[in-house]
């Protein structure tokens, strides 16, 4: 298979999924509203002292992003599974891993990127400083694709199962813990005047690791689930 056809296929899958998302805009908005809602609940739960909120901000935003992306994962493959499109994708004369990567990228555009863009606005609710906001955005920018990629494995494994949503969270959330730790760690580092390089480069390493392995693993999971 030549390189051109890989990029053509990627392009096709991403464009298709984005087009579908544009025709079902409500789904995208629901995830964003959920994210905003969860973050806004925390001050109501723990009280409005700014010192404490500033300390909690990074963790709260990261946990909320984690939960919001879990919410959108159920739909990653299930719509295509139900209407038979997934069968056709598996019969594509190109590698299924490339197709899966395309779906992951499209999923990130729809459910990860909006969170990254929304995060600084929510960070202001918690009185985060400008450098902290920038690092938060950067860590989310690197980290949310990992959530989409790891989540895709869980979504593929729980395809068509009863109660798939809750099960999906049980499978995927433990795997996402390192991202959560390094992501919120980066923000904590910058607020306490330390270097953020180590945290961010660890997320970067996880990102590369996921990029290499998760499309293939997800493709295998899809083949198992289609039986």
């Amino acid at each position: 298979m030549n390189q051109l056809s890989i990029f053509k296929l990627l392009n096709l899958v991403i464009r298709r999924d984005l087009l579908l998302a544009m025709r079902r805009r409500a789904d995208v908005l629901t995830i964003l509203v959920f994210f905003v809602l969860v973050v806004s609940l925390f001050p109501l739960g723990v009280g409005p002292e700014m010192d404490m909120l500033r300390k909690m901000a990074a963790g709260v935003l990261w946990v909320a992003a984690l939960l919001a992306s879990m919410l959108s994962l159920g739909r990653l493959f299930s719509a295509d599974y139900l209407d038979g499109t997934l069968e056709q994708m598996m019969l594509a004369p190109q590698s299924l891993s490339v197709l899966v990567l395309g779906k992951m990228i499209a999923h990130w555009f729809v459910s990860g990127l909006p969170l990254v863009l929304m995060a600084p606005v929510l960070g202001l609710q918690f009185d985060m400083s400008v450098p902290a906001l920038l690092v938060l955005m950067l860590s989310l920018l690197l980290g949310t694709p990992i959530l989409s990629m790891l989540g895709a494995i869980g979504a593929a494994l729980t395809l068509g199962l009863r109660g798939g949503g809750v099960l999906l969270s049980l499978l995927v959330l433990p795997l996402c813990i390192p991202v959560l730790i390094f992501g919120s760690g980066a923000v904590e580092a910058v607020t306490s005047g330390l270097s953020v390089v180590s945290n961010l480069s660890l997320i970067g390493a996880l990102f590369v690791l996921c990029l290499v392995f998760t499309p293939w693993v997800t493709a295998q999971a899809l083949r198992i689930s289609m039986e």
Binding site: L9, L12, V13, L20, T85, E87, Q88, A92, P93, L99
Partner: peptide
């Protein structure tokens, strides 16, 4: 070329888009 019980077409897309995408997937 496989055609199963399900039509593998998307409700949100037009007939034209559906055909173009599904043939794109098969190269």
């Amino acid at each position: 070329l496989y055609l199963g019980h399900h039509n593998a077409i998307k409700d949100e897309l037009s007939a034209l888009e559906n055909l173009q995408i599904s043939s794109g997937l098969s190269g």
